[in-house]
């Protein structure tokens, strides 16, 4: 089965939560050194919940679709629940099987969101 399913291509062609939030509590960038892909993630937090999130950047269909779906998924969620998300949660959202190389593309958004939450915690401390 192709990994380029309609759902993935839809998100790739019109990603949700695309852009940079005007007001945010965290702003991080992550990159995939093997292809030069970059994502910037901004997010807003109220009472330990992600109330808004946006991303910009360049990437392949898999990383952009993953960013689009994952930002949908984490919006409104407790920080703690998001911190606990794993590779399997991302794969479940994408609903495809990936080889190790492409897995790195799919996991870049999760890496970004985790990094953003970590940066929040360090500023709150």
């Amino acid at each position: 089965m192709s990994i380029y399913q309609e759902l993935i291509l839809d998100h790739y062609h019109s990603p949700h939560n695309s852009g940079v939030l005007q007001k945010y509590d965290a702003d991080v960038s992550v990159a995939n050194s093997s292809c030069g892909d970059k994502l910037r993630i901004t997010l807003k937090v109220r009472q330990e919940k992600i109330t808004d999130i946006a991303f910009t950047g360049e990437g392949c269909a898999i990383s952009i679709a993953a960013a689009s779906m994952l930002t949908d998924e984490v919006k409104g969620k407790d920080l703690e629940a998001v911190t606990g998300m794993t590779k399997d949660d991302v794969l479940k959202l994408l609903n495809i099987q990936l080889t190790p190389t492409r897995l790195r593309c799919a996991l870049l958004p999760l890496e970004g969101i985790s990094k953003a939450i970590l940066s929040l915690k360090s500023t709150m401390l």
Binding site: I3, Y4, C35, D37, E58, G59, C60, A61, I62, R102
Partner: peptide, 12 residues
Amino acid sequence: CHPHDIAGILAE
């Protein structure tokens, strides 16, 4: 077209 996607689709 992102190079990864090109290679990925051809790989299929």
